[in-house]
Write a protein that binds this DNA or RNA. Structure first.
Lengths: 226, 226
DNA sequence: AGATTTCAACTTGTATACAAGTTATTAAAT
DNA sequence: ATTTAATAACTTGTATACAAGTTGAAATCT
């Protein structure tokens, strides 16, 4: 488990949840690894209560398995969950960008425009980290434009299953292609062209297609045996 | 708050979550109502810990608002949430039944067939409660057939927002129409006819369309003022 | 009477003690 | 040496004590 700095603004519970979630995403808490409420609370410097509540929440999201009186474990990667995450992201992103085409106000478009311009700026500078942040923000803005913020929160939660597989696969997509896709999505929204928007989103998501078979061979101990 | 019987098989935490959730769905815990961890734990006969964990979970689902050191309240009905729930249900149900058309095995179809036959049986008997149970099970079976069980769990959570509005509106759809729709969905799956399946699902969901304007006039205190 | 202060009664947040059950080690018996 | 039994060290589940903050009523002062 890697150290995560506690921010002054957050409660013990928020800190614990964030720290554990990040460790699962990054696989510093490995799939299948045993975790102990006591150990984690000692490591984070908070009591068992906030740690326990965070673990319950991650259990609810199927990221931690709890065996009462026996122990808790980081969930093994379940191929079905990963596939459901990919499936869900696709149908949500398409449906939402179509809504965004109908609903985008000039103000929404201005903000999206600004975001993409920044992405293009940092592309020149080769600043992958900034692009990563702007990427997340860009997709969130589309959900907000379509008045689907709650659904976006849900999307985030289920995407953790995909994120940790992506971490293992070290899958990276060329920033240039990503930023280019975003520019095209913005254009489609401006033109209110749903069909075009849908096509680009599909193409965009296909860039993140990964070979699970390959990954299972490399990290067999991380995957649930069907 | 109405009494919910504790089952011998469930933990204190499971009992508390189920009891509070049911009370919110049925509006026995009214939107806007103040709730206290102490009061609820006394009423349910469990300690604050499991009650608190349940409240945290419902807070995460936007059904309870927590103001630290001040109090917690059943969330007012937020029209945007309700609309997001309706939106989500529609795109999910359509995408999933299309998948089910591709993936249904003879065994899946046999089970769906049995379920619908039972619905038709209880329709004759005028047993609305049984039909309600079978209805829920029918939709879950379609998700399972499409290997989308995780997504179904998520659907349940967000649908609570819609359920409690439906409770207030006393919206009831004639059992005969519901069962008829289910028979048609089953046929579409058997025929692997995605287009037909989609059309029926859309028609089916439209039966539950409700007039929020009307409801806001009747229960203004239950709704969040935009 | 009206404004101000004090304080008691609440709230949730966190820490901790104990309950109940599992597991692995150790010791004893065969 | 092997099996069995006892036990110590863990686990999560639950209850409770206390910390920190809010609120409103009662008491006090002007």
């Amino acid at each position: 488990m890697k150290k995560v700095e506690r921010m002054s603004s957050e409660t013990a519970r928020e800190y614990a949840l964030r720290a554990i979630t990040e460790n699962i995403k990054s696989a510093d808490l490995e799939p299948g690894q045993a975790i102990s409420e006591n150990e984690i609370s000692a490591f984070l410097g908070v009591s068992r209560t906030p740690v326990r509540e965070s673990i319950q929440e991650l259990h609810k999201a199927a990221l931690i398995e709890i065996y009462p009186q026996r122990g808790s474990y980081v969930s093994l990667i379940n191929s079905q969950y990963v596939e459901e995450a990919v499936f869900l992201r696709k149908i949500l992103d398409i449906a939402v960008i179509e809504e965004a085409c109908d609903m985008a106000t000039p103000e929404d478009i201005k903000q999206l425009e600004e975001n993409v311009a920044l992405q293009e700026f940092y592309l020149e500078k080769d600043n992958t980290e900034k692009i990563f942040e702007l990427d997340n923000e860009f997709h969130r803005m589309i959900y907000v434009t379509a008045k689907k913020e709650t659904i976006h929160n849900m999307r985030q939660m289920i995407m953790i299953h995909f994120d940790r597989v992506r971490t293992l696969s070290m899958l990276t997509v060329k920033d240039k292609k990503i930023v280019g896709d975003h520019r095209l999505m913005l254009e489609a929204i401006k033109e209110k062209d749903k069909e075009k928007a849908k096509e680009i989103v599909e193409k965009h998501l296909n860039r993140y297609r990964l070979d699970q078979e390959e990954l299972i061979k490399t990290f067999p101990q991380y995957f649930e045996t069907a």
